[in-house]
Design a protein around this nucleic acid. Structure first.
Length: 940
RNA sequence: GGCCGAGUGGCGGAAUUGGCAGACGCACGGGAUUUAAAAUCCCGUGAGGGUAUCCCUCGUGCGGGUUCGAGUCCCGCCUCGGCUACCA
């Protein structure tokens, strides 16, 4: 077998590594450690996508490199296996979801092994393993057992929660309620997407435009008892601790924006009877009293411009504030609002909607009566669910005021600012949201916005009608799903003698874990909002503990749960005494490099960091953050496509006359006629100016771009076909050669063929492809390197090593290609250089490298052979070509010795035969000489 | 609407961070080998032009600026992509 044949050598070396446990990691690292983690995949029925191996290959290269550098490397893989598709499959086929999950995992495992990743497969786990989710449940119990101490800014055991006397004097029931209200895991009523036609509760992503994704049935919003996690308590720490992390600034801003901390002021507007008017308190009450409507604003300086108020349709005061004559209208409005999805409330609503309650409140700063409206542009879940509306200085309020003819009172003078029509603002005809100088604000007039804010917040605080407040866009985490295929909650609901819930809850004792999923008769939806587990057999559902009868919690945890801590379990995957051994945890954590798709940039990473911080506060982990360095790989798109557009009469329409409608339909700009997309072949088009046009009709521009890979577009590439045709090493190499890891890049089959060509050439550089047996190419000889060969070798080692350290894997491959191009032309190829090259190549293309290493006469494996060193002195060339410029324009090049002095270089440039005539008769104003770099004469 | 990112040959992308734009690969063209093809090897390949084995001009989305010198820095735009969605 003289030719490079990946189909033979790849399975051989995979079997070798597996048999010899080449990549098993020690329990405790010896010497330097490196923990490199891939975001583990959801094992879908479609198998691996070429997007997966991109990040996996990059991390594998880093791992293989560090093993050769002498590090202890932990590089595990597992499966995030709970999830909706498996449950949908179970419903359709009436088979337990475990079965399809196991099948899919087997496919993923096979595909991952086929790509030669150096995972320690002994540590493989799936979130659906009972042995794993036993500890997911255990961590939930820690969250349940923790309260957040605001003063100390950390989570503490619930047993240390101080109980105020006014609580404890009301008896055990009230105390237990108080305690439950302070846990990090607590129950609340939250809205769910209930679909009566399907008889099930849907996840947000299953709802599209207010209809179910499957079957397009109407979806209602329904309040349901849910488990929540108090992530907002950790919001400030989650934001501040980002600073210490080696993550890209854009991901940090993304998380920071998601947390969305804003500082503002809470203000009470009096809504009681007119006679008493507003009361002033000594101190601002923690919970608003019944006769006030509390609002949150970031612009307390605009209080004098508040001309009306708005409460959310779900606000608890809706009924109280609705006057008899408005009853019908309000009821109708709130009902229609409850049917709207969040999306409909925002994007699709081109104009604002709302209804007047009939009630008024008193503006505390000027005692004016302002009408209270209900509108769905105010969200009940943010701030206090009520706002003071300042149409002159808030675009949303302005739109609403225009719609319903409400007064606009300007209170901020913008002054002379570009793009602002000051006169229009002062006349209330335009809205201005910037800072300026106060007007129409009594004795606050003439104050600058920020001074005003400080001043009025102090004054409101002194009067007990306001105080500074902080709000977050981040909401508490809705942590339960009405689904079967998830971790059961280790929670019991106490029942009274009649079998009704008492409202008291009880954690399942740690010794009773795990709470496994029951076997069900069928997986069909119950037809009620009850979770499927409510249909479980009684011997699962009902529990007797310490003489009480309990019913198990029937909600399950969301898919995020298992992925919140898997990186810890990989450190000690078999431990049945603890979720992770503390000594092992301390020696391996934190994760040194975490690579995955940007789609998890916010939620997964935020949730995992939150759990980690709770575990840290409770002393179970040693680092405040789990992932020290994070890299987000870019998306891999399908092959480049050319698309032309035709109208119904099959006439071509150039792209500048094509518009996209909201639903994605392409239409002609003026006539709004729908257009047909036609895929064109590369040789039907040509480049003209900035765009591509139809060759036979150069006035017609066409679209040229790559699209996301999707089944419906039919541009999905499977790793299986690439490995079959080109081999795993070619796939790995191509994915790295495509471009920078973080960038979005289009797939190209021709590109895969190109890197395969490189591996073929590398093979022939070392192996005699004419012989029957594997034997060395006769050009490979035990000879010393000549000066040039040594320079090329050491330059390659240096470049490849440095590029690897900075994860510029595409240019490292280019350097190795240059090496092969050079040495292929050498009639004598020193064996030592070939050895070094194979080591450089091995992290990228490990199978061919092992094969070549053996052919060069070494024992397997090269996985722990020291990484080549380079000698800086070998890189030096004796002479160097220096560009000579006149007025910054390149005019000539001159060759000088590498250690040439500044003076000498200038002299050489000045006397260059092309430069001499150009300088003749000119006055040299300035000469710039950068030794080893360039010379520039500035002349007049 | 907001935030983030990106615009360099026919295509993917390089460019030591202000110093020879287009490394490397693909595609394409020419040649060698071959009965022929595949494979392989060699040469060429940003655009335009000229007195054509040599030389000139232009050129990194557009318009300005800083600098001896800008793909790289600053200001203002345009286009595309991703995320997000009335957060008061």
């Amino acid at each position: 077998m003289p030719r490079y044949n990946p189909a033979v050598i790849e399975p051989h070396w995979q079997a070798y590594w597996e048999e010899h446990r080449t990549f098993s990691a020690p329990d405790i690292p010896t010497g330097d450690k490196l923990y490199v983690l891939d975001m583990f995949p959801y094992p879908s029925g479609d198998g691996l996508h070429v997007g997966h191996p991109e990040g996996y290959t990059a991390t594998d290269i880093v791992c293989r490199f560090h093993r050769m550098k002498g590090y202890s490397v932990l590089h595990p893989m597992g499966f995030d296996a709970f999830g909706l598709p498996a449950e949908e499959h179970a419903i359709r086929t009436n088979t337990p979801p475990q079965e399809s999950t196991d099948r899919n995992i087997a496919t993923f495992r096979r595909q991952l092994k086929m790509l030669g990743f150096s995972y320690d497969w002994q540590r493989e786990l799936a979130t659906t393993d009972v042995k794993y989710f036993r500890w997911t449940q255990w961590i939930f119990l820690q969250l349940f057992d923790t309260w957040f101490d605001e003063d100390q800014q950390r989570g503490r055991p619930i047993s240390e929660l101080p109980i105020p006397p006014e609580i404890s004097e009301n008896g055990e029931q009230v105390v237990r309620q108080y305690i439950d209200d302070h846990r990090l895991a607590y129950q609340a009523n939250a809205m769910v997407n209930w679909c009566p036609a399907l008889g099930t509760v849907l996840a947000n992503e299953e709802v599209i435009d207010g209809k179910s994704e499957r079957g397009s049935h109407p979806v209602e919003r329904l309040p349901l008892r849910q488990w929540m996690l108090r992530i907002t308590a950790y919001a400030d720490r989650l934001e501040n601790d980002l600073q210490e992390l080696d993550w890209s600034e854009s991901i940090k801003t993304l998380q920071s924006n998601w947390i969305g901390r804003s500082q503002g002021t809470e203000v009470d507007f009096y809504i009681g009877s007119q006679e008493t008017n507003q009361k002033k308190h000594k101190i601002f009450p923690r919970k608003p009293s019944d006769d006030v409507l509390r609002v949150y604003t970031t612009r307390p300086d605009t209080l004098f411009g508040a001309t009306y108020m708005v409460i959310a349709p779900e606000h608890p005061f809706v009924d109280r504030l609705t006057k008899a004559e408005q009853q019908t209208a309000v009821k109708k409005y709130c009902e229609s609002a409850s049917r709207k999805s969040d999306l409909e409330r925002t994007e699709l609503a081109k104009s604002k909607s709302g209804v007047f309650t009939g009630s008024y409140a008193v503006n505390p700063v000027n005692d004016q009566l302002v009408p209270i409206w209900i509108a769905d542009y105010v969200l009940v879940s943010y701030g206090t669910g009520a706002i003071m509306a300042v149409p002159a200085h808030d675009t949303r309020d302005f739109e609403f005021a225009q719609q319903f003819n409400l007064p606009v009172v300007p209170v901020v003078d913008p002054g002379d600012v570009a793009d602002v029509d000051r006169a229009a603002v002062l006349a209330g005809r335009e809205c201005f949201v910037g800072h300026g100088i106060a007007i129409n604000s009594s004795n606050y007039d003439r104050l600058a916005t920020s001074e005003f804010q400080n001043q009025i917040t102090a004054d409101l605080t002194a009067d007990g009608i306001g105080k500074q407040a902080v709000n977050y866009k981040l909401r508490d985490w809705l942590f339960s799903r009405q689904r079967f295929w998830g971790e059961p909650f280790p929670i019991l609901h106490q029942l009274d003698n009649d079998g009704n819930p008492t409202g008291l809850i009880q954690a399942v004792p740690e010794s009773e874990l795990p709470v496994n999923l029951p076997k069900l008769e069928d997986y069909k939806p119950a037809g009620t909002p009850d979770p499927p587990l409510a249909k479980a057999p009684d011997d699962w559902l009902y529990v007797t503990l310490n003489g009480h009868r309990y019913r198990r919690e029937t909600n399950t945890m969301p898919q995020w749960a298992g992925s919140c801590w898997y990186y810890l379990r990989f450190i000690d995957p078999q431990n049945d005494q603890a979720f992770v051994d503390p000594a092992k945890e301390k020696s391996w954590m934190p994760v040194d490099l975490y690579v995955g798709g940007a789609e998890h940039a916010v939620l997964h990473l935020l949730y995992a960091r939150f759990w980690h911080k709770v575990l840290y506060d409770r002393g179970y982990v040693s680092t405040p953050e789990p992932f020290q360095k994070l890299v987000n790989q870019g998306m891999i798109l399908g092959e480049l496509e050319f698309t032309g557009y035709q109208d119904p009469a099959k006439r071509w329409i150039s792209t500048e006359f094509v518009e996209t409608e909201v639903q994605g339909q392409k239409v002609q700009k003026d006539s709004r006629q729908p257009l047909q997309a036609v895929t064109l072949d590369i040789d039907q088009v040509e480049k003209k100016g900035d765009s591509f046009v139809i060759k036979d009709n150069p006035d017609i521009r066409v679209e040229s771009r790559s699209y996301k890979m999707s089944k419906s577009r039919g541009n999905v590439v499977s790793p299986d076909e690439i490995v079959k045709e080109y081999g795993a090493d070619s796939l790995r190499l191509y994915e790295m050669f495509m471009g920078p890891l973080e960038e979005t890049k289009p797939w190209s089959m021709a590109g895969v063929n190109g890197v395969r060509g490189f591996l073929d050439r590398a093979w022939r550089m070392i192996i005699d492809d004419r012989s029957e047996e594997i034997q060395l190419n006769p050009a490979v000889q035990d000879v010393d390197l000549n000066e040039e060969q040594a320079r090329v070798l050491h330059r390659t080692i240096k470049a490849v090593t440095q590029d690897l350290a900075t994860m510029h894997l595409n240019t490292a491959i280019a350097r190795m290609m240059e090496f092969v191009n050079f040495f292929t032309k050498q009639s004598k190829r020193p064996r030592s250089a070939m050895n070094q090259f194979v080591l450089l190549l091995s992290p990228y293309a490990p199978h061919i490298a092992e094969e070549l290493w053996q052919a060069l006469g070494h024992d397997p494996s090269l996985a722990y052979v020291p990484w080549p060193d380079y000698d800086e002195s070998m890189l030096m060339e004796s002479s160097v070509e220096i560009p000579v410029q006149i007025n910054g324009k390149l005019k000539s090049r001159t060759t000088v010795s590498v250690d040439c002095s500044k003076e000498h270089l200038e002299q050489a440039a000045r006397s260059d035969k092309k430069i001499v005539p150009l300088l003749e008769g000119k006055q040299i104003v300035k000469t710039v000489v950068v030794p080893g770099r360039m010379v520039n004469f500035v002349v007049r």
